[in-house]
């Protein structure tokens, strides 16, 4: 060790430096490494948490968006359905109204026809009667008061005649 003395290596000083180093080690550990590394760790944890949080929020937003999308789709479909149904019902209603109207029209037409028929028959009967009277009148005029046949019988004859002619008409 004495040979090293000119180089400045001295056991006591060596020990002093060693103690100095160990002291510095503990002081720096206490005041620098521990707080800084703890802080770094904490910061990393915080950032991780924040990122996870952001991720979660984004996922939730994504879910909500999908939900909205789905609801919107649902609403659109249901409104479409309603519109379709209404259109169908309208169509049905239109058809049924039309049908009813046609039926009614048919009924009215039939009644009218019946009425006409009735009136025609009445008119015909009236005509028959008048024709008979006229015929009697005409016959009376032609014969000239000579016809003594009972009026009742005359009428009967004419009616018979008309009945027969009716078969030809």
């Amino acid at each position: 060790m004495d040979a090293l003395r000119p180089l400045g290596i001295d056991p006591a000083l060596l020990a002093a430096y060693l103690i100095n180093f160990v002291l510095l080690l503990f002081l720096l550990r206490l005041f620098l490494y521990k707080p800084v590394l703890t802080m770094l760790e904490e910061r990393r944890r915080k950032i991780q948490e924040a990122l996870a949080q952001a991720d979660k929020v984004r996922q939730e937003a994504e879910l909500q968006r999908a939900e909205f999308q789905r609801e919107l789709e649902e609403a659109r479909r249901s409104s479409q359905e309603a519109a379709n149904r209404i259109a169908q019902e309208t169509e049905k209603l239109r058809a049924s109204i039309l049908e009813a109207a046609q039926r009614e029209a048919e009924l009215i037409r039939a009644q009218a026809r019946q009425q006409i028929e009735l009136e025609r028959q009445q008119a015909a009967a009236e005509l028959q009667r008048q024709v008979a009277d006229l015929a009697v009148e005409i016959a009376r005029k032609v014969i000239g008061q000579t016809v003594t046949l009972d009026e009742q019988i005359q009428r009967q004859l004419i009616r018979q005649f008309l009945q027969e002619t009716k078969h030809f008409s």
Partner: peptide, 23 residues
């Protein structure tokens, strides 16, 4: 060497005296 120790320790204490999350 002692002075170097003091410089380092003082720096360390100053740096970590009021640790903040946003440095």
């Amino acid at each position: 060497a002692l002075l170097v120790d003091i410089i380092l320790v003082v720096l360390a204490i100053l740096a970590t005296r009021r640790m903040q999350l946003v440095p």
